[in-house]
Amino acid sequence: MLEGKVKWFNSEKGFGFIEVEGQDDVFVHFSAIQGEGFKTLEEGQAVSFEIVEGNRGPQAANVTKEA
C-alpha cells in the first residue's frame, strides 16, 4: 500500500488525483474508494491505496481514508 494526499477531487464528476511524494500524481475514480455511503475525498486528505494499470495508465485502487 502507498500513502498520499488528495490533490483535488471533483465529487460531481467522481474523480480526482492523489499526490505521492517522489512520484507522478495518481488518478482516482470514486468507485475505488472503500467504505459505505457517498464516496468522495477532500483536498489534502491523507489516503492509502494501491496502484493498478487502468485503460489510460496507472490509477488508484482500494483507496482508504486515513484517520
Rank of each mutant, 00 (worst) to 15 (best):
M1A: 08
M1L: 08
L2A: 15
L2S: 15
L2E: 06
E3H: 15
E3V: 15
E3W: 09
G4K: 01
K5G: 04
K5S: 06
K5R: 14
V6Q: 01
V6I: 12
K7Y: 03
K7L: 06
W8N: 04
W8G: 02
W8F: 13
W8S: 04
F9Q: 01
F9I: 03
N10T: 08
N10S: 15
S11D: 07
K13E: 05
G14T: 02
G14H: 04
G14V: 01
F15T: 04
F15K: 02
F15E: 02
F15N: 03
G16P: 00
G16A: 01
G16H: 00
F17E: 03
I18E: 00
E19Q: 13
E19P: 02
V20A: 10
G22V: 03
G22Q: 11
Q23L: 14
D24Y: 09
D24A: 15
D24G: 15
D24H: 13
D25H: 05
D25F: 05
D25T: 14
D25P: 06
D25C: 04
V26L: 15
V26I: 14
F27S: 02
F27N: 02
F27T: 01
V28E: 00
V28P: 00
H29N: 03
F30D: 02
F30P: 01
F30K: 09
S31P: 07
S31K: 13
A32I: 02
A32Y: 05
A32K: 10
A32P: 01
I33A: 02
I33C: 03
Q34R: 09
G35S: 13
G37E: 08
G37S: 13
G37N: 09
G37M: 10
F38G: 07
F38M: 15
K39L: 13
T40N: 12
L41D: 00
L41Q: 01
E42T: 13
E43R: 15
E43S: 14
G44F: 08
G44N: 07
Q45A: 15
Q45W: 15
Q45V: 14
A46F: 10
A46Y: 08
V47Y: 02
V47M: 02
V47N: 00
S48C: 13
S48A: 10
S48Y: 13
F49V: 03
E50I: 14
E50D: 11
E50Q: 15
E50L: 14
I51R: 10
I51S: 04
I51L: 15
V52E: 15
V52G: 14
E53I: 08
E53Y: 09
G54R: 12
G54S: 15
G54N: 07
G54Y: 06
G54L: 09
N55V: 08
N55R: 05
N55D: 09
N55G: 15
R56A: 12
R56E: 10
G57Q: 04
G57W: 07
P58L: 09
Q59P: 01
A60C: 04
A61G: 10
N62A: 07
V63R: 00
T64C: 05
T64L: 11
K65V: 13
K65N: 09
E66I: 11
E66K: 15
E66S: 09
E66M: 13
A67N: 12
